[in-house]
Nucleic acid binder design. Sequence first.
DNA 1: AGTAAATTACGCACCTTTTCGTAACCACGA
DNA 2: TCGTGGTTACGAAAAGGTGCGTAATTTACT
Lengths: 110, 110
Amino acid sequence: MKNLVSRCPIEEVMQVLSGRWPTLLIYYLKDGTKRFSDLRRDNLTISHKMLTAELRKLEGAGIVQRTEFDGYPLRVEYDLTPEGHKLVPLIDALGDWWEETDEVRAVQQV
Amino acid sequence: MKNLVSRCPIEEVMQVLSGRWPTLLIYYLKDGTKRFSDLRRDNLTISHKMLTAELRKLEGAGIVQRTEFDGYPLRVEYDLTPEGHKLVPLIDALGDWWEETDEVRAVQQV
DNA sequence: AGTAAATTACGCACCTTTTCGTAACCACGA
DNA sequence: TCGTGGTTACGAAAAGGTGCGTAATTTACT
């Protein structure tokens, strides 16, 4: 999903939130500061490369704040921005919707 | 994004809503019944292969209702289900969030 | 009257594009 | 030599576009 087909804000958010990782990362970060290696430990299956790419995307969208500390080994901390925190309940609402419509899907499958 | 890495409802919704088309299709359908060819006309760039695939995914998720009418040429109508309609304001909220955080992003880019 | 073409909603095969994981490498300090 | 956070190159796999085929009926042309 490289470029947009409309200038609709919804398509723009979805470009950032689409995929397996963005919402999961937001969820790990909502509990507080995490380091790169913390996220890799929590989130077993994401590759090194994907994690950096996704974090930068979220940073560019103003959802995640990256803080680099001088010294070796290099230390970097990731947090949700205030804007990122505002996003959490909206994503929760989608999860709730999914759970509520679970029975509907169960019926349809028959 | 073939299979899930967690059993979190949020990852499950995102599997359905991820990508360029699902939310756009929901938006076209929220105004009422559309036929396959209506959607292709509105939504210039989607290929027929993608359109069928996305519509079936939304149908499987209980968001879209597909109604087939006998006769030739075959006629098929697509509508949002009641559950699908409930989803609209949640997606709207994401779009609103994106617009509100627009200035934040503008500042960061500098 | 007879034939040709258009219509609708796809399925399928083929081919290109994009995505993503793996692995190697870098910087440095303990 | 290991750990940290990150980049790059490579290759496999998945996503997605194009074009052809299909059904039965209507319309358009000769």
